[in-house]
């Protein structure tokens, strides 16, 4: 009967560790697959729950994502680097496919509509303490709040142009042009 040794909470693995695990998964090493799952599944599930808004559905998608990772670990491009971004993208694109198939009614909670608290931490001390001050976060702060909210509702909540337009009460054309302009400005900022 039994067992499963206690699973200690793991620290976030660095890119090199994830790359090593992916390489072993490509060689069909089951232990590496389990280690990879334990390292990144909680983070991917957070992304999926935020997008799909249903934990059971998010967990089903999480399973599909790891089946894909097991099958396609050999396609991870080491030259590209950023293994977590590769994994997060697989999860997000799978969630987008699922959304397209089910088209749930979008109901945004109040917290989704409020200005994201992560952008209200003004002081550099706060930001350093939480370690959130990535280039992306810095550059997102340069974008006006309504436009920024469009980008976040799309990336984090998986909303379409049309859904964002309804959620914010702004015309569809306005939302589309906000997104276009914001993306170009964001890229300029990230490159500077």
């Amino acid at each position: 009967m039994t067992t499963l040794a206690a699973q200690p909470t793991r620290a976030e693995p660095d890119g090199a560790e994830l790359e090593a695990l992916l390489a072993r998964c490509a060689a069909k090493d089951a232990a590496a697959f389990e280690a990879l799952y334990q390292c990144v599944a909680p983070r991917l599930l957070a992304v999926l729950v935020k997008m799909l808004r249903r934990r059971d559905l998010a967990e089903d998608v999480l399973q599909d994502v790891f089946v894909k990772v097991w099958e396609q670990a050999g396609q991870y491009d080491r030259i590209r680097g950023r293994p977590l971004a590769w994994l997060v993208s697989i999860a997000r694109y799978r969630a987008i496919d699922v959304q397209r198939a089910s088209r749930p009614t979008v109901v945004l909670s109040e917290s989704d509509m409020l200005l994201d608290p992560r952008f209200q931490m003004a002081g550099p001390a706060d930001s350093e303490a939480t370690g959130l001050r990535s280039a992306l976060m810095r550059c997102l702060e340069m974008i006006a709040p309504p436009q920024r909210r469009c980008l976040l509702l799309a990336y984090e909540n998986g909303l379409t142009h049309d859904q964002i337009s309804r959620a914010l009460g702004e015309p569809l054309g306005t939302v589309k042009s906000w997104v276009r302009r914001s993306l170009i400005n964001l890229r300029r900022c990230l490159e500077s």
Partner: peptide, 12 residues
């Protein structure tokens, strides 16, 4: 991907 790191992980 930097943004996904700001979410609290959820244990499956």
């Amino acid at each position: 991907c930097a943004l996904s790191r700001t979410l609290d992980p959820i244990q499956p």
